[in-house]
Write a protein that binds this DNA or RNA. Sequence first.
DNA 1: TGTTTAATTTAACTTTAAGTTAATATATCA
DNA 2: TGATATATTAACTTAAAGTTAAATTAAACA
Lengths: 226, 226
Amino acid sequence: MTKSKILLVDDEPDVLEILSYNLENNGYKTFKAKDGKEAIEKAIKILPELIIMDVMMPNMDGIEACEILRKDPKFKNTIIMFLTARAEEYSHIAAFQAGADDYVTKPIKPKILLSKVNALLRRLNQDNISEGPIEIGNFVIDAEKYNVLFNGKYFVLPRKEFELLFLLASKADKVVKREMIMERVWGSEVIVGERTIDVHIRKLREKFGDNYFKTIKGVGYKFAKS
Amino acid sequence: MTKSKILLVDDEPDVLEILSYNLENNGYKTFKAKDGKEAIEKAIKILPELIIMDVMMPNMDGIEACEILRKDPKFKNTIIMFLTARAEEYSHIAAFQAGADDYVTKPIKPKILLSKVNALLRRLNQDNISEGPIEIGNFVIDAEKYNVLFNGKYFVLPRKEFELLFLLASKADKVVKREMIMERVWGSEVIVGERTIDVHIRKLREKFGDNYFKTIKGVGYKFAKS
DNA sequence: TGTTTAATTTAACTTTAAGTTAATATATCA
DNA sequence: TGATATATTAACTTAAAGTTAAATTAAACA
């Protein structure tokens, strides 16, 4: 993979230097701009993956620059991160509304900065193709809305029930082993009894009928479309 | 929500048919054009949300059509997506330069096509939220004026309350996780107790009633239109 | 600049719901 | 059939959220 390009925007050369130093040392290619106007010009040429930008700048501030960039489809996948002084009691909302993805407060702590940058760029590179609700049989299972549309009726399930249903439905027609269910729904740290899964399956059957959740004895369960 | 309109442009009727079939089956309204020239004429009438267009066409190719469309402010929010044969790798650069948002390679794989179309249109619909006040249910929430019109009455909320309401309303019907609320309303560096969110939710419920703010236990809250 | 008022947070406590267990019943398969 | 796995229930435990009042902090104002 090629180095990610990061555009740094701040009116203080010192800040640019700190940012650049830390990011270059961690394998990123950095570029600098001194205000919002220059940032936009450079962004168009460079097409960076990430822009780290001060909120308060002369000429054109970060929020305004962010809004302009967000209107250009070329930057629809570009991550924009703000720098704010802790003192500035500005509302985060303005920044997020303008299309920011995250922010870091000054003074900059290199560790925090890097962990955020890494996290954001990792997220960018992950394909988010498998988004949206699962539609299967009579079910529409929407993890975002946390609800289940079943035969035209909405259900709001308790968390574990929902996660169990979601897991089974997302592997429809395939057997999900009990240990896999444990791992996915309860996690490898929690220790709960074996019957717990059964009880939750039962709750699902109570709500949606017996047909959809098939027991594979000695193995696990599978979701059947009908 | 009304069906999104998609304009399909290709000189091969077969390709138009495949696209149309898959998209109509997924709740989109489609229109067809056989070259760039016809595409522009139809686009002006239809004002589609999305245009899917072959790069190589007789009369006027996709790139040229895209450039022309991009000059017209009517289409500043229209998404343009190209179809390219896998071989013609070179054209991607030209396409993006002309203002394309995405591309899909032929032969068309319906699943990939649909996930891209869904993702692009979802993003389009979200972006529009950031401009002007949010109108939802009985609420008109204006982040610029920092006020809330609810059932014909104006409210001026304290900052945190407002930001919480704004956040939930801007993702109406979707669950906003507690950690996301923390991050967005309080910021990732401030450390406040868990109950703080609850208390603010309670304040909102006091003002606007219990119906609008739904608890998803173990996850977060969601704004319900009614 | 101190004073007052409002906003925000905390802490203690209550309520509610979710999740688990364990005992018993039932089903399944060799 | 008999061994073994799963199903079912109800009782219980734990976790999460709701509520209130008091304490803290920030904002407004004279």
